[in-house]
């Protein structure tokens, strides 16, 4: 460590600082321009004039009926939680059974689930519509939750079963001798030990649910009163992509809350991801 020269450290710090600043430029452009009239956005996209800053466009975006911001956040947060509950809740017992039952049948079952990781979700959406329709779940939130969860299950189950396999078997065997039932062993002994990997799965699933656009777009459809953040932004912006008085304020409203969540939870999110990556 003594060999790291102060010059090299300085260069390193400078490079990191410049790169970080570069990553933030688009954010800066979005924030500044959300408070400017179109003419000024065109004339000076980077600067701002305190005299002409206005919150009119933000207010207009806030009131835009095609993108109800608060509702959009509520629906999207609900999706994040519900999909995680379904995907994790279903994957834990399945992964436990698969990991602890080394018969060919269960090995095949694991393979069957893992194969789903190679099926891109948006691609099977078209045929999934027919299934949801047959179930009477088309255009409903439960239908959407089930579809999104099903696309999360393969990966969740895969990392869970890998993790459980690393947990010492003696733990559950001891509990079994004490007369504990299988469910009890799973939820009171194994599951608490799985916390790091559950956190990883939760974060990854949350990100994919949060970012999903096509599934809510097609499954909910215009008949539903529910809009997610992505479908709301699309409805509000897609036909006005160069009307910057609409684009920047709408995007700003769409990203500020999630960025705040990210900043507050940053350590947990990044930590959770890397914890899973090391152990999974």
């Amino acid at each position: 460590m003594t060999r790291t020269s102060p010059i090299r450290t300085a260069v390193r710090v400078a490079v990191v600082a410049v790169l970080s600043a570069a990553m933030l430029v688009p954010m800066y452009i979005m924030v500044v321009n959300a408070f400017k009239p179109q003419q000024e956005i065109l004339l000076s996209p980077l600067g701002f004039d305190l005299a002409t800053l206005t919150t009119d466009h933000i207010a207009a975006a806030w009131q835009n009926t095609s993108f109800p911001v608060v509702e959009g956040y509520a629906v999207t947060l609900f999706l994040v939680l519900a999909c995680n509950v379904v995907a994790i809740g279903a994957s834990v017992p399945a992964a436990y059974t698969i990991a602890r039952t080394p018969t060919p049948l269960f090995r095949f079952l694991l393979f069957f689930f893992v194969a789903g990781m190679f099926v891109p979700a948006q691609i099977i959406l078209v045929p999934a519509i027919f299934v949801l329709k047959a179930l009477g779940l088309m255009g409903t939130l439960p239908g959407l939750v089930l579809f999104m969860s099903s696309t999360m299950i393969p990966f969740t189950l895969f990392i869970f079963s890998g993790y459980i396999r690393m947990l010492p078997r003696s733990l559950d065997e001891a509990a079994a001798i004490d007369g504990a039932g299988r469910q009890r062993i799973l939820w009171t002994i194994v599951f608490p030990l799985m916390r790091p990997i559950v956190a990883t799965a939760f974060i990854l699933n949350a990100l994919s649910a949060w970012n999903d656009f096509v599934s809510p777009q097609l499954i909910l459809g215009p008949g539903s009163q529910f809009r997610t953040i992505t479908t709301g932004v699309y409805a509000a912006v897609s036909t006005y992509t160069t009307n910057y008085e609409i684009v920047f304020p709408t995007l700003l409203l769409a990203v500020v809350p999630i960025l705040l969540i990210f900043v507050l939870m940053q350590r947990h999110i990044m930590g959770g991801l890397s914890a899973g990556a090391v152990k999974g």
Binding site: A90, S91, A94, V119, S149, S150, T151, I153
Partner: peptide
């Protein structure tokens, strides 16, 4: 549960 959701919708 996992098999049902995954089979049904994937």
């Amino acid at each position: 549960p996992a098999a049902a959701v995954y089979t049904g919708l994937t």
